[in-house]
Simulated scan of single mutants.
Amino acid sequence: MQLGPIGFGAFKIGRNEKIKYPRPYDLPSDQEVDRLLDGLVELGIEHFDTAPAYGISEQRLGNWLGRRDVPVVISTKVGELFEDGDSRYAFDEASVRASVASSLRLLRRDVLDMVLIHTPHDDVTVLRETPVVETLQSLQEAGDIRAIGLSGKTPEAATMALEWADLLMVEFNADDPSHAAVIEQAARREIGVLVKKGLASGHLPADQAIPFVLNQSGVNSLVVGGLNLAHMADNLRIAEAALSQASH
């Protein structure tokens, strides 16, 4: 799967409760979601990242995909659910299998492109003491998932995941470069690296934060959330300029 420098984080199309963004926002209408997603594809952004914990995000992406014939790559997650205003975590085999089945149905896919383990802060315990990795490997072998990986919190868990993951999603930005070493290890093993929170949930300026992330050796793509198509276009321009400058 080839990913562009910027992917779209679909949190804000599905959830606006208990958020970490600096400003509150209203959920967009169905028509606004369609216009946003259509506009992203026109820009050339074809990786959309979602999760069961993102409220109605998977459902909205699936509804849009059901009306479009577009070659997008979708990443989703297992482990965290958001119900009745609260997050809860479940990493047992039955819950993971049910989550994947739900994502296939909601996203209207025969196969999920990428499924990541969505962990709380104690991500090492999740990897050591639950069957989530083995369950995802079984679902991958059965043909339900193309690529599996970890969307965790700590460099320790990310390092553990190098033994089995096809890709990692890690927090990495100028304020928190703690995953730099494991990103480079992943690159040496030809494991994909997606960066989340590269703009520190909107607290860092894009013109500085995006080049910092994409100039890190081993990073394949940066996932950025938002509801403003013009801002996403600006992010993509910054990314392409940073990559062009780095190649010269």
Rank of each mutant, 00 (worst) to 15 (best):
residue 30 D to T: 07
residue 10 A to Q: 12
residue 198 G to N: 04
residue 117 I to S: 09
residue 100 V to T: 14
residue 242 A to H: 01
residue 92 D to Q: 09
residue 127 L to D: 06
residue 1 M to S: 11
residue 189 R to F: 04
residue 211 P to Y: 03
residue 231 H to L: 13
residue 35 R to K: 13
residue 5 P to L: 03
residue 21 Y to V: 11
residue 40 L to K: 08
residue 106 L to C: 03
residue 58 E to V: 11
residue 33 V to F: 01
residue 222 L to I: 05
residue 159 T to K: 15
residue 208 Q to V: 04
residue 9 G to Y: 07
residue 66 G to I: 04
residue 27 L to N: 11
residue 129 E to H: 12
residue 190 E to C: 02
residue 220 N to I: 01
residue 168 L to S: 03
residue 160 M to G: 00
residue 235 N to I: 14
residue 6 I to F: 00
residue 43 L to G: 06
residue 231 H to W: 13
residue 59 Q to R: 15
residue 145 I to G: 01
residue 116 L to N: 01
residue 110 D to G: 10
residue 149 G to P: 07
residue 71 P to Y: 00
residue 241 A to P: 09
residue 136 L to Q: 04
residue 149 G to D: 06
residue 182 V to N: 07
residue 216 Q to E: 15
residue 198 G to T: 07
residue 221 S to F: 01
residue 107 L to T: 05
residue 29 S to I: 11
residue 163 E to T: 00
residue 153 K to N: 04
residue 50 T to E: 05
residue 172 F to T: 03
residue 244 S to D: 10
residue 234 D to W: 04
residue 12 K to Q: 15
residue 214 L to W: 02
residue 207 D to F: 11
residue 46 E to T: 14
residue 179 H to D: 06
residue 151 S to G: 15
residue 195 V to W: 01
residue 47 H to V: 13
residue 110 D to F: 05
residue 216 Q to L: 08
residue 238 I to F: 05
residue 230 A to L: 14
residue 217 S to W: 03
residue 224 V to K: 06
residue 130 T to I: 13
residue 117 I to C: 08
residue 71 P to I: 00
residue 59 Q to T: 15
residue 214 L to R: 03
residue 35 R to N: 13
residue 106 L to S: 09
residue 99 S to P: 11
residue 117 I to V: 15
residue 218 G to Q: 05
residue 94 A to V: 15
residue 187 A to L: 03
residue 197 K to N: 12
residue 195 V to G: 01
residue 228 N to A: 04
residue 170 V to H: 04
residue 143 G to M: 07
residue 236 L to Y: 04
residue 248 H to A: 06
residue 178 S to L: 09
residue 223 V to T: 08
residue 108 R to D: 06
residue 184 E to D: 02
residue 148 I to N: 00
residue 91 F to C: 08
residue 43 L to D: 08
residue 122 D to G: 04
residue 55 G to H: 08
residue 240 E to Q: 14
residue 126 V to M: 08
residue 222 L to V: 03
residue 125 T to N: 14
residue 179 H to I: 01
residue 193 V to S: 13
residue 228 N to P: 01
residue 227 L to D: 06
residue 183 I to P: 02
residue 150 L to A: 00
residue 6 I to S: 00
residue 216 Q to T: 15
residue 86 D to F: 13
residue 175 D to L: 08
residue 79 G to H: 08
residue 59 Q to N: 12
residue 174 A to I: 12
residue 70 V to I: 11
residue 201 S to Y: 15
residue 73 V to G: 01
residue 11 F to D: 08
residue 84 D to F: 03
residue 116 L to V: 01
residue 205 P to D: 14
residue 109 R to G: 05
residue 88 R to W: 10
residue 215 N to E: 15
residue 104 L to P: 13
residue 118 H to D: 15
residue 10 A to L: 09
residue 38 D to I: 02
residue 30 D to Q: 11
residue 111 V to I: 14
residue 14 G to S: 05
residue 221 S to Q: 12
residue 17 E to V: 07
residue 145 I to M: 12
residue 214 L to T: 07
residue 141 E to W: 08
residue 145 I to Q: 12
residue 214 L to M: 03
